[in-house]
Design a protein around this nucleic acid. Structure first.
Lengths: 354, 354
DNA sequence: CAATTCTACGCAAGCGCTTGCGTAGCGCTG
DNA sequence: CAGCGCTACGCAAGCGCTTGCGTAGAATTG
């Protein structure tokens, strides 16, 4: 344990001044050398960087932030329960964000809230803790967007909102999701389709409903309000609903689910009643590509639309950081990704009723 | 949309100076008033706070941080894959941490790394981005601990390491976990017990092995190296291993699993072979109390030791923040929590072999 | 070789906040 | 009413960094 090779005197705070004295240069030169300013010749630059390395110098981000107005950190604001719930796509989004943030040498400030989101956002923005903000799951008409817009901080939304402001978002074509999924079931002859959607206050759920309506309309039909449900996107909810519906007097022959978790619950209910998915009952859903739950592994494999929410996370972070670094000289980014409909074995022709 | 009640001129940066001019006071007074310094009378304090509220002032954390040396943020450093994997207790720990951090008005800096953890830690500490650091899953002899210790930044470890330094940690008695679990199986007469442990480089896995050894020893027996496994803590790993073992010529009659995921896999393997857990094969595990996977809901309910890893997370954050606020005038906190052994129905007497 | 242009670096003013020290002006006391 | 201690506040020096502007001295030019 006798190790004299330790390069730095322990916990002696080493700052620019120290470095400057050590090298007989001014702070400005050191600073510029470290930031690779062009006015500094390669030779001294190297001298500086090696000295910095040796002394274990790394700039005080608070001071730098004060001077530059930049933090090199972005914030992710979300309701705490999205972390608490087991069945959520949040962690997958987080993973994507986290990945890019790390790669681009930024920091990620996790900012959960319980009930006072507006305050949290306002404080995060005005305290200049972060350079930009990501928010998720926008409502149909989301007040956070005008708020952040007024606050003048770069932000990007995972999903969009029907707000007439120039903000950045990425989204998938949620109307297309339910239009494709619904259309498939209709084309297979299903007449009673249970639609398990999320809560309509969320823009994406709303769009999905509209997409389903279009699928019906294109085939000369109209929605049956009794078959449209707003429900949490959990296995249990799917199970409960499916169980109830299947034992009703006029049970659905197909289920259109907003998430894999719902579909999972529906599978369980169907199986439990001795029925067979894909034969007696058809099931489809939208798949976010979550870790650990893959439609292809269902029995039978589950037909679904697909778009990786983790990639969405990566994208969000990239867009936001670009926005930040462009310093406001950048048009809002608005991306609507296509979804793929992947046919597997969970859909069959509607059987004649007996 | 004609709303003249908007309280603040949009995005005009409002700082201490602005406030000071607005109120005809000095910056110092404003600052002290906002921090509720005793030399400021209640009356002016109120005047200041209401003005601050009205103008939407919140202090620039970078500047404050520079002046005070505090960030009011803590960092969580972890390998990125702990987020990527579906089966991990990491998100539960994170949830606990996140909860407390929010409650105590701190920020949480998520700092994943891919391969250069030491650098990340060093940079995080010396750049003064955070006031303290949480690290997880220590090795038997973990180099991060001396590093952080030398760096002189407050930190706390989730789990402990056999390093002779005064650092803070919380842990469970992992030896007791496998001693209890193993003892139970032994007392039920099992002779061939497959032990599915994590990798021994981790201190906790090591301690567990030792605990199991003690359980054996107390009953006059010695470990069978062929029955001790180091494996990822996933369902698939549990399934694969159990499948292989059950079809070997001298199959185990019991499985001691390090995690619920492993146990889940073992259940699947057992069931698939037409055997019955609790009758033909016994299974026990340690349960971290993860979201969405509860031993009590297994079929049959799974006997396990229990300690909530989410509470551990809460605890970690609390301890670290206390440490930070004590400013180094605080002895290291070392807590080793008890685990409860909860008997359910997954253990039966060893059947006589036929 | 004087005039000019670079090259390589230094000065010093912030960034927005905290805080040790100082000081008017007030009400008391004796 | 001089002397005193408070009360309520202001001054100004940082915290560690960035950056616009300035300037020696070397290199280049005609």
């Amino acid at each position: 344990m006798i190790d004299q090779s330790k390069p730095l005197r322990k916990s002696q705070r080493v700052d620019l001044k120290t470095l400057a004295e050590e090298l007989g240069l001014s702070q400005s030169t050191i600073s510029r050398a470290l930031r690779a300013h062009h006015s500094i010749p390669e030779s001294t630059r190297r001298r500086v960087t090696t000295a910095a390395e040796k002394l274990g110098y790394s700039p005080n981000v608070r001071a730098r932030g004060l001077a530059t107005g930049r933090t090199e950190a972005i914030g992710l604001v979300f309701p705490l329960e999205r972390l608490q719930l087991a069945q959520t796509n949040f962690v997958d989004v987080l993973t994507g964000i986290s990945d890019v943030v790390t790669r681009r040498n930024y920091s990620l400030l996790l900012t959960p809230f319980s009930d006072n989101e507006q305050d949290v956002l306002r404080k995060l923005a005005t305290s200049r803790t972060v350079d930009g903000i990501i928010i998720t799951r926008p409502l149909v008409d989301d007040p956070r967007i005008p708020l952040l817009h007024d606050l003048g901080i770069p932000f990007v939304v995972h999903g969009r909102s029907d707000v007439d402001l120039p903000y950045s978002f990425i989204d998938i074509d949620n109307a297309a999701v339910f239009e494709k999924l619904g259309g498939l079931l209709l084309d297979y002859g299903h007449e009673r389709i249970a639609v398990l959607n999320s809560f309509l206050r969320f823009r994406y759920a709303n769009a999905r409903r509209e997409g389903y309506r279009r699928a019906l309309e294109a085939r000369g039909r109209v929605p049956d309000p009794d078959m449209m449900f707003e429900t949490p996107m959990t296995e249990q909810a799917g199970y409960d609903l499916a169980t109830a519906l299947l034992s009703s007097e006029n049970p659905p022959t197909a289920f259109l689910c907003g998430s894999v978790f719902l579909a999972q619950g529906v599978y369980r209910a169907v199986t439990e009643r001795g029925l067979r998915v894909g034969q007696d009952v058809s099931v489809v859903c939208h798949d976010d590509g979550l870790r650990g739950i893959r439609p292809a592994d269902f029995d039978p494999p589950l037909t679904s639309t697909f778009r990786s929410v983790r990639e969405a996370g990566e994208h969000l972070a990239d867009i936001l950081i670009n926005l930040v670094e462009a310093n406001g000289n950048k048009e809002p980014i608005r991306e609507i990704a296509e979804v793929d409909l992947i046919l597997r074995d969970s859909v069959g022709l509607q059987k004649p009723r007996h």
